[in-house]
């Protein structure tokens, strides 16, 4: 496969940074897909079709990683340091562990109470925490040399907040149906 050595950032003509303009990225994805998508090769030979499918698959895959802040952070850390946080990694951060337990308890209480507007308020709170966590992540990645221990902690926190948000969504689904 030609150019498969390219990293996900390079595929979109970007420098490897944590901050990414997502609307711009998705519009870039569309421009790229416009020239390589299998629909462009529906009446070409089997070989071209295969190639086009591979390229499109790579682009879709890269986009899925870059668009998701947790996956992007994990990918970027791995790219720069070789550390793989996606594989059973434990982080020692007692303070955050406490906060985590409190947030989970709060969510359980709200779900048990069945109050949608309280759930939405809680979702806003987590979103805010996530946003500031992302900002911190940007700063950590901009520092030289990289503080890998801090980054691993930050990724872990972001992952937790992300997971909590998706749990909130599921809880909302259940409450509404």
């Amino acid at each position: 496969m030609a150019n498969s050595q390219q990293n996900y950032f390079e595929m979109f003509g970007l420098e490897p940074n944590f901050s990414i303009d997502i609307p711009k990225l998705s519009s870039k994805l569309r421009t790229l897909l416009n020239s390589v998508h299998p629909d462009r090769f529906a009446s070409s030979g089997a070989q071209q079709q295969m190639l086009s499918m591979q390229k499109t698959t790579q682009l879709n895959d890269a986009f899925a990683v870059l668009k998701n802040p947790v996956k992007r952070a994990q990918y970027l850390l791995h790219l720069k340091t070789g550390i793989d946080t996606a594989k059973d990694h434990t982080v020692n951060d007692p303070e955050f562990l406490m906060q985590q337990l409190e947030l989970r308890e709060e969510l359980e209480d709200i779900v048990a109470g069945g109050n949608i507007s309280r759930l939405n308020q809680f979702a806003d709170k987590i979103s805010e925490l996530e946003e500031s966590q992302e900002e911190q992540m940007s700063e950590l990645f901009a520092r030289q040399p990289l503080n890998t221990e801090e980054l691993e902690k930050a990724i872990y926190k972001l992952q937790f907040l992300h997971k909590t948000l998706s749990d909130i969504e599921q809880a909302e689904d259940k409450l509404l149906s």
Binding site: N3, G13, T31, L32, S35, G45, Q47, Q48, S52, K55
Partner: peptide, 26 residues
């Protein structure tokens, strides 16, 4: 046989069109 002989050409064409799309975008 034709497929085999055009393998490299097809791949270069695909890369060229990606490069063009990226530049055009910028």
């Amino acid at each position: 046989v034709v497929d085999k002989s055009t393998e490299e050409f097809a791949s270069r064409r695909m890369d060229a069109s990606i490069a063009k799309a990226l530049v055009g975008h910028e």
